[in-house]
């Protein structure tokens, strides 16, 4: 069973749809027991960091998430919330990844929206993924490159496209919206 963390972030259904298309059963839940029992957990997110963190804290989901032992995949805002700190609403985050999240400097269009490729891929998440593959991004804040970065991408500057530490995985892009390439990456995670 795959558990998708329920919180006040947009479009969680698209993550569930993608998991269903890959043939996995899933539940959307904010229940601590259900999250702990799941084989894999997905921590999605589109929205604003400050209110998302406040929501997680209110329900003690912040503690639950950082104590999970099975593979967990943060997506987009999910990646940013797993970092140390974000400039968005000056928010202290979950601190799994030793990186800060910053606003792109306004020298090109913001958000970084659309299809982009990545380099420096490491690990099983990127099995069968090539340098020419594109995935879909939409974000105005980016995670700095750190020791946990397992893929980098470039828009205005190089940033973390994906991160990993122990059982915590995260992608800045949306695998659930990234056509066949995204499906492969999601499947790689679900097969871990």
């Amino acid at each position: 069973m795959i558990a998708i963390v329920r919180y006040n972030a947009g479009n969680i259904m698209s993550v569930r749809n993608a998991v269903t298309r890959l043939g996995y059963e899933s539940i959307i839940t904010d229940d601590q027991n259900e999250l702990e029992r799941a084989d894999k957990v997905i921590f999605p997110g589109v929205g604003e960091a400050g209110s998302a963190m406040a929501y997680l804290k209110e329900r003690k989901l912040d503690q639950t998430i950082i104590s999970l032992r099975q593979p967990i995949l943060g997506i987009c805002l999910g990646l940013q919330l797993l970092c140390r700190f974000t400039e968005e609403a000056e928010t202290k985050c979950l601190g799994i990844f030793p990186a800060s999240v910053k606003l792109f400097p306004p020298v090109d269009k913001i958000p970084h929206m659309g299809w982009n490729n990545f380099i420096n891929m490491k690990g099983d998440l990127f099995k069968d993924i090539s340098l020419n593959d594109d995935v879909y991004f939409v974000h105005s804040f980016y995670a700095e490159i750190s020791s946990c970065t397992i893929a980098t991408s470039e828009y205005i500057l190089p940033f973390s496209a994906a991160m990993q530490r122990d059982n915590f995985y995260a992608t800045q892009f949306h695998p659930e919206k990234s056509a066949g390439v995204g499906e492969k990456i999601l499947k790689n995670f679900l097969d871990l």
């Binding site: 947009g10 479009n11 259904m13 698209s14 949306h174 659930e176 919206k177 499906e183």
Partner: peptide, 25 residues
């Protein structure tokens, strides 16, 4: 499995909520 936009006759935030909940990006 790619992003999509929905429009036509959206007048209120409630209209948007229904479409986003249904899965529009």
């Amino acid at each position: 499995n790619i992003p999509f936009t929905v429009g036509g006759g959206i007048d209120t935030v409630e209209d948007v909520a229904v479409l986003i909940k249904a899965g529009a990006d």
